[in-house]
Design a protein around this nucleic acid. Structure first.
Length: 341
DNA sequence: GCCACCGGTGGC
DNA sequence: GCCACCGGTGGC
């Protein structure tokens, strides 16, 4: 789903899911054929990504897997009791591949079987979104994959595992599929950024929207979509979370910390290049990440920009007025919030 | 001039 | 500490 962005949850080609090895990932990420999205928009983006990507194939280690763990497995033998809350979620995922020095894209989507807990690759982003939309009410099982893999069952080995050097991220379940003609793009930022990812929606017109406020404004300006049933509840800017802790740079505690004039020591920050996780340890489902192993104290010399405050106040006002016309965001939204905790 | 991308604030 | 939002800007 990446639009102009490189990382989108683009879909891997069907042919790649037999054995998801790192190799497959590479193939997916490096070949344009891996993007099967049919929207022209996504195609444009993909093309662009492709260019960038071709230059970074060596960056295999930066691939990211997006998934939504949690197979509601009550009782999965597999589920460590101590697992973080995340574990309770249904599993979904896609993996990302780098398409530029700092941007990653999803190279594959995976969903965990609620019965055997094996990860099954999902052939397309659309299918992934379809499954994700109702994952909580309709758990995914290996048999579900028979739609595209007639013989698959829990007896087959997992399509993909978490210990092969990919970057994994937890996606959220029950995110609505984008309205017809719309694209939901996930842009995974490079390691060390202040945010893990950005979600964008590309309207049928090609307009790129980056927040609910944008969506609201757009729908107001284009009532035709509303008559088609497109409403705010069809959108979600929820982003997946990286399994690797410290992938995202922590917010600076205070300005003073960065004003002592000291320069960053090379060892203090995350390397721009992707550092492969210490194997499976931090990637096991439900396991805490490795952040504690890499304490970091990011610092920068930037100065604050108080000028933003005034504008923000205005924005907020606008937002609240918009919100009043906005349909309540349903149980879904709330569900997710709870889910997160 | 446009816009994709990144940074980072305010609010929670 | 997280997240929604959006300003700024480099690259095109």
């Amino acid at each position: 789903m990446v639009g102009g962005e490189e990382n989108d949850l683009n879909e891997p080609s069907l042919s790649n899911h037999q054995e998801t090895t790192q190799q497959d990932v590479i193939a997916v990420s490096s070949s344009s054929s891996s993007f099967s999205s049919s929207s022209s928009e996504s195609e444009l983006h993909e093309t662009r990504n492709e260019n960038v990507q071709s230059q970074s194939n060596e960056n295999v280690s930066r691939e990211l897997v997006l998934y939504n763990p949690s197979a509601n497995d009550e009782g999965g033998a597999h589920e460590p009791v101590s697992t973080p809350v995340r574990h309770q979620r249904p599993p979904l995922l896609g993996h990302l591949t780098p398409n530029s020095s700092r941007v990653l894209r999803v190279g594959a989507f995976t969903v965990q079987c609620a019965s055997c807990f094996k990860w099954r690759l999902i052939p397309t982003k659309e299918k992934y979104e379809e499954i994700r939309e109702h994952l909580l009410e309709e758990p995914f099982y290996c048999e579900t994959a028979r739609e595209w893999r007639p013989d698959i069952s829990c007896n087959d080995p997992a399509d993909i595992t978490q210990d092969d050097g990919r970057l994994w991220a937890i996606d959220k379940p029950n995110i609505a599929q984008p309205p017809p003609g719309w694209q939901r793009l996930l842009h995974i930022r490079g390691e060390g950024s202040t945010k893990f990812a950005d979600v964008y929606y590309i309207a049928p017109s090609g307009k790129r929207l980056r927040s609910m406020v944008d969506i609201q404004k757009y729908l107001i300006e284009h009532p035709e979509y509303q008559t088609e049933g497109v409403c705010m509840t069809r959108f979600s800017f929820q982003t997946p979370k990286p399994l690797q802790e410290n992938y995202v740079r922590k917010r600076r505690a205070n300005m003073n910390a960065s004003c002592d004039g000291s320069k960053l020591e090379s060892g203090e920050v995350y390397p721009i290049s992707w550092a492969r996780p210490d194997n499976s340890t931090g990637l096991q489902l439900g396991r805490p990440g490795l952040s504690e192993l890499f304490p970091t104290a990011p610092v920068d010399n930037r100065v604050s920009q108080p000028a933003k405050k005034a504008k923000r106040a205005v924005t907020k006002e606008m937002h609240s007025s918009l919100a009043s016309t906005e349909p309540p965001d349903l149980s879904l939204e709330r569900y997710f919030n709870e889910y997160k905790k």
